[in-house]
Design a protein around this nucleic acid. Structure first.
Lengths: 275, 275
DNA sequence: GGCATCGTTTCGATGAACGGAACGGTGACC
DNA sequence: GGTCACCGTTCCGTTCATCGAAACGATGCC
């Protein structure tokens, strides 16, 4: 409920709550409340205390205590001296996600080939809402450190993989991304829809997308699309590294070739098709 | 229901349930029931229908239906035309598990080095109860296909990484493993506790463990321990591949060196210490 | 020693959860 | 095309699991 249950806000005595508590409507269902607790770990990873969990979820102490105990019993949380953290069981569960598992296993050899040729960061990503989600990242000692992490999402409009999705994936991606706002993360981020559209046209024309320090200063990337058997784009492969070391023009064919080979393999045997 | 609600088959009134249903005590808690549904996907990955979920969990249809709907609303399950599957959100959640994330990120460059030198399967694993859990696996086109998959567990006594844990990890590992039974998976699996103990002594002596077709015929492996800053073993690195191509004696120093370098790095900066 | 904050436990009121039963749709089989 | 089997979905009266304020004990800080 958005409206506070009391009388109209302008009333004299009725203003009991001093504006401060943003009372997220708590889900009534026990299950939903328990799952909120898991969600609480997603932004601030590391460990959380019971009090922190209460603060993040808005649950009363007693309730959170009970539910957390149940999550620990299930094995989803580990507790260490008044601290809770996500447990290895959740990692195992996450690895069972079929779409991700099959795609990773099929892609990894190609990613390794690219890594070996460049020794830079090699990714495979899928589209998730308006963001690009990194399924896997291969990196080494000689690779430039980047922000991209496995399992995290970045805005589509400022990443090479995301741009490929915006250009070659479902048209709704572009609309959604613009509607969500083209946030600026570096001075070189493309924030004007018109310019982005031109850029995406170039992606279509060339068959690959680039990122010229648009997500992170000093980091450039090049990405190519992976298709399923019905020519629908399901993933993107990219190489990212230092802007002064990477020659994107030269790398683009290699990335495209890898993506093409993976596409062919996917078309051949398994059905990594969304429904 | 397996037992028809009619009269007892053999006559006597007391024997209502004809032995067949192993009535797992259903948890009363809603949260635990909901989590059971997620667990149901762990063995038989891929997709499940509502009826299959009921069969696996023992939940009544109406209850499962309600809870599944809630899991879908949370985002943990995707539904596609009367089919449910684990969603990408669970993958993301699994990637937040701090222990696994930090260890993987620190280890990956060393795994890549080993991969590049051998082009065989390179793993990093931790110990989970009596099994060895693969946190990461690097593999390529030229690598021999093996059973080991990221996020899955294998018995400790028949894997190279597991043996290193049994030999150099907490002494309870060995006791637990023997108590759980040394199951045979190939003719070369070591199933006698005495022989295993001798083998583990050799691991201590040499500083690395091997697996000579003990988990999978035709596959051999060599593994070395990774220590935290307090010299407690927290992981193992291994190389696995075809028994006719891999020279374990020659690879062992490389694996040990990588594990040692990783141990030093872990001791240096981050605290990947179990509480 | 007082104070703040933490995690834990208690317990009676309450309503969310339960699940048997009924319903509508689909595909296989005869 | 009629029947059957099985599916997912919805309904609804009963009840027991869930709730959370309050009290409690432990801990650390001023």
């Amino acid at each position: 409920m958005t409206g506070p249950p009391g009388i109209a806000p302008a009333g004299a005595t009725g203003d009991d709550e001093p504006v401060s508590p943003p009372p997220r409507a708590l889900p009534k269902s026990v299950l939903a409340r328990g799952l909120m607790l898991l969600d609480a770990f997603r932004q601030a990873d590391t460990e959380l205390t019971l009090a922190e969990l209460c603060a993040r979820t808005g649950l009363p102490k007693a309730t959170a205590h009970r539910l957390v105990a149940e999550l620990v019993a299930w094995g989803g949380l580990d507790r260490g001296e008044n601290r809770y953290r996500l447990s290895m069981k959740l990692f195992e569960l996450g690895q069972c996600v079929p779409h991700r598992r099959d795609l990773r296993e099929a892609a990894l050899p190609y990613l390794e080939d690219l890594y070996e040729a460049t020794h830079e960061n090699v990714h495979i990503a899928v589209q998730d809402e308006v963001r690009t989600l990194f399924l896997e990242k291969v990196t080494g000692h000689r690779s430039t450190r980047t922000l991209a992490r496995v399992g995290t999402k970045m805005p589509a409009h400022c990443t090479a993989t995301g741009k490929v999705f915006l250009a070659l994936g479902s048209p709704v991606y572009f609309r959604q991304a613009v509607a969500a706002g083209l946030g600026r993360t570096t001075p070189r981020t493309i924030v004007m829809p018109g310019i982005l559209r031109k850029e995406l046209a170039r992606v279509v024309e060339r068959g690959y997308g680039t990122n010229l320090e648009e997500a992170e200063l000093g980091i450039v990337a090049v990405a190519a699309p992976v298709f399923d058997r019905r020519r629908r784009m399901i993933a993107a492969i990219s190489i990212a590294g230092s802007s002064c070391r990477l020659d994107l023009e030269r790398l683009a064919p290699a990335v495209r070739t890898a993506a093409l080979a993976l596409s062919r393999e996917l078309a051949r045997d398994r059905s990594i098709v969304r429904e």
